[in-house]
Nucleic acid binder design. Structure first.
Ligand SMILES: [Mn+2]
Ligand SMILES: [Mn+2]
Ligand SMILES: [Zn+2]
Ligand SMILES: [Zn+2]
Lengths: 147, 147
DNA sequence: TCCTTGTTGAGAATGAATCTCATATATTTA
DNA sequence: TAAATATATGAGATTCATTCTCAACAAGGA
């Protein structure tokens, strides 16, 4: 039964780094959210929770969380990098509406085998990937039709 | 037999815009390249070709080329947006090595039907998408092993 | 205790991308 | 043909997410 704090702690130890209070607070904030977030939004959550963590440390910690596999970079929107925690979540792809900006998700189970086989053929060591689909959500599609 | 200049010209006309010399030169430069490029690299090509086009106009023209469907946004590397022309090219995905930065391509034919079906089920109007796979290329994988 | 190494916040710096604006050029109108 | 209107452009300023710098601090080992 490994929780994310244990995983992060071990990951850090392996790199000669420590699980400090700011890092712990950032980790908690990340797992208190259940949607996509950017650095600034995460920083806001920390302020609401009265965690005294600087924005610089947020930006410094995100790469560590990425490397540990606890979060993933999901997409880029309005020139901001968007993340989400993935520990215990199934792999999924993103449908991004170019008009309203909404994001919905779909399972990737049907595609994974294909990608893994392709990686093997290439002798490519797959560590991460992203599949983002851009267009119009049904809502915006209808809205445009009625005009 | 539509060439890309005709396509771009018609696209612009439909928007009440004109195919000016700078736009023509940018278009030519884009199709003179046969690999991925960012705005700055495209600007360099234009300078080498003695085209007097400003960087601002390059940045202004890229969204037009995107919307016309002649180029696509391929990925983001080292905080730069990377593009490539796609007119007459098959859809493909990108294998990106996190160590050496190399990018290789693979056909997307096997995945397209799945994506199109998924889009239909969602009533999502798919306009564009990107599938980028990150990890280690075989070269870097071997290199790391021998150390 | 001393020394090395890692950590942090605050604010400065970076740099790709966007914006402003004065000046051109094309197209339409009278 | 001469306004009037709309679109384009280069140069340089600006934006702003992200990264960097640095001084102060803390943990752990010798
Ligand atoms: Mn997601
Ligand atoms: Mn490509
Ligand atoms: Zn929408
Ligand atoms: Zn490589």
């Amino acid at each position: 039964m490994q929780d994310h704090e244990q995983i992060f702690s071990r990951f850090l130890a392996k790199k000669g780094l420590r699980l400090t209070l700011p890092r712990k607070q950032i980790l908690d904030a990340v797992f208190s959210l259940h949607s996509h977030f950017d650095a600034e939004q995460l920083f806001d959550v920390l302020r609401i929770r009265n965690a005294e963590v600087s924005l610089a440390t947020v930006y410094r910690t995100l790469p560590l969380l990425l490397e540990s596999g606890l979060i993933q970079h999901s997409m880029r929107q309005e020139s901001r990098d968007i993340y989400e925690h993935i520990f215990g979540h199934p792999r999924h792809l993103h449908w991004i509406c170019r008009q309203c900006g909404s994001v919905s998700e779909t399972s990737l189970d049907n595609i994974m085998p294909f990608l893994e086989r392709a990686a093997q053929e290439q002798h490519f060591e797959l560590e991460d990937f992203s599949l983002n689909l851009m267009g119009l959500c049904w809502r915006c599609k209808n809205e445009n039709r009625n005009q």
